[in-house]
């Protein structure tokens, strides 16, 4: 059982380090997720864990705590519609506005285990004619080093490749390795993965035509959402698009971003 002061410390710790806003009803979740972390690190209980984190807030144990509390569920072509709209409307529009030869840049800001950036890469591969030889850079980042490693490896279970992935992509873009499926090297090479905490500066990533930041803001409080959205707006090109998750919006959180003509797509206010 987590005592009130330990819970308060962990809540503050997670908020400061990852932006995760933990409600009072999440005590059970905290216990369930931290139990394996404590066992692995031979920590005897929450009180000892908190004492260790108080002493050293940036240790491997601290990172393990943050990673354990991060939700990494992802699937290929999640929600389907944003990808359909990307291929049918957004890409043709942006390509028509860019001079030939200028690469398009796409950022997946919460890439998790890679399904989202790889879905974009497969979609682009399927629409090569639309790109007319134009280069597309896909930058994929996530808070968790562990999931980024998995994403880079590009190996998925049979269950994972069946959730949302049309079977023709499975045949075209994956190699079977026993019970697992590995994404083909040419698709993997289209995505550049790196670790990034959205609470820290991401200005070094450069400007992007399209930013996918789906299903991560829901874990933040209003002030953090507002801060992250403001900084995302700063790395978007003037006519760029931000794509949020189905349950997310910029409403009341951003003065720089407004809804675009497609649901879930946001543009910079002119």
């Amino acid at each position: 059982m987590i005592g009130p002061s330990d819970f308060e410390f962990l809540r503050r710790f997670l908020k400061d380090k990852s932006g995760l806003a933990l409600g009072d009803d999440k005590r059970y979740l905290l216990e369930t997720r931290l139990d394996p972390v404590m066992k692995k690190a031979s920590v005897t209980g929450i009180t000892q864990l908190v004492a260790t984190l108080r002493e050293r807030g940036s240790s491997p144990l601290a990172e393990a705590v943050i990673e354990a509390m991060t939700t990494n569920e992802s699937l290929f072509f999640r929600d389907k519609r944003p990808f359909d709209q990307l291929a049918a409307l957004i890409l043709p529009e942006l390509i028509s506005r860019r001079p030939p030869g200028q690469p398009l840049r796409i950022w997946c800001a919460a890439a998790s285990t890679g399904q989202e950036p790889y879905s974009i890469a497969m979609l682009l591969r399927d629409n090569e004619r639309l790109l007319g030889g134009r280069r597309v850079e896909i930058v994929a980042t996530d808070l968790s080093g562990e999931v980024i490693e998995r994403a880079q490896e590009g190996v998925y279970t049979q269950f994972e490749v069946q959730r949302g992935l049309p079977v023709h992509y499975l045949l075209k873009c994956f190699n079977q390795e026993g019970q697992m499926w590995r994404i083909n090297a040419d698709i993997r090479a289209m995505v550049r993965f790196s670790r990034l905490n959205l609470l820290q500066s991401f200005a070094h990533l450069g400007q992007f035509d399209i930013v996918f930041c789906r299903n991560v803001l829901i874990y933040f409080d209003a002030a953090t959402k507002s801060d992250v959205l403001g900084r995302i707006a700063n790395v978007m090109t003037r006519d760029g698009y931000l794509i949020l998750g189905g349950a997310e919006s910029v409403l009341g959180l951003s003065s720089e971003l407004v809804p675009g003509s497609q649901h879930g797509f946001y543009i910079r206010k002119n």
Binding site: L75, Q158, F159, Q162, R163, G164, P166, V167
Partner: peptide, 16 residues
Amino acid sequence: DEYIMKPFDADILREK
């Protein structure tokens, strides 16, 4: 039109 590898669950069937 599509292919499911057994075992499957409701999420997989729904997506297909």
